[in-house]
Amino acid sequence: MALLSMEKVSFSYDKKIDAVKNVSLTVDEGEYVAIIGHNGSGKSTLAKLFNGLCKPDSGEVVVDGFSCKDKKSLFEIRKRVGVVFQNPDNQMVASIVEDDIAFGPENLGVKREEIGERIQFALASVGMEEFRKSSPARLSGGQKQRIAIAGVLAIKPKILVLDESTAMLDPQGRKEVLEVVERLNKEQKTTLINITHYMDEVVRADKVYVVNDGEIVLSGTPKEIFAKRELLEECGLELPVSSKIAQKLIELGVNLPDGILTKEQLAEELCVLKQKI
């Protein structure tokens, strides 16, 4: 059974326009799922539906056997789905890193000694141990966001959701955050859902969902997704620069295969081509 499943879920903020329309999707344990869409496509609403911050108008979200329809299971769902939001500044409650990370476990009523262990574990997971006593105000964007991830990990969720968590970071910060979460997915088998509008971030995902106007318009492996260039552009998305250049080269008669996603791949294919000549 899937760890998280969404069954024909619709939701609207104002009861007029649906932010999410009839969405069904599943996420398996240990999977790395990416959800992409342009700004305002409804992808962030999905994150809030995953952990019960929004309640579906129709349809059902089930996490690890707990349904969002059951009021009592809300807490259980939030324990299992940890969400990291976009602005690192707006998700910290304390002026010292360890106090902030303690916030989640404190809410769960975890014993004092165990909270200390959890802080240690969470900070180690994001590689920020030496900042335990620091003030978040003095950290870089990427570091702040890693602290936010640690704050969520201290709750020991089964699913880690990044709700555009890299959108406000510089390239360095983006790289840091992605490295951390992708390592967690690989090494600790944390189920990962990355909601983003950066096409190059979804390259390594197991499964990609493309969202447009609150609907899922496309799903598949990154390779399958990137092959549908026109459809992506209709959804306000664009291929990563490497794919775009590959596309142009193909148009100009260079014999490259379809579905090139990264600059390394493109360089390799060009190398293969050169050797054939």
Partner: peptide, 27 residues
């Protein structure tokens, strides 16, 4: 106000539900 709203969401997402059954790390 925007920050407050986002913070409220983030706190909810981290299982905040008032002072009931809450422990305290700092001593």
């Amino acid at each position: 106000f925007r920050r407050a709203e986002e913070l409220a969401d983030a706190m909810d997402a981290r299982c905040y539900s008032g002072s009931k059954n809450r422990t305290k790390y700092k001593k």
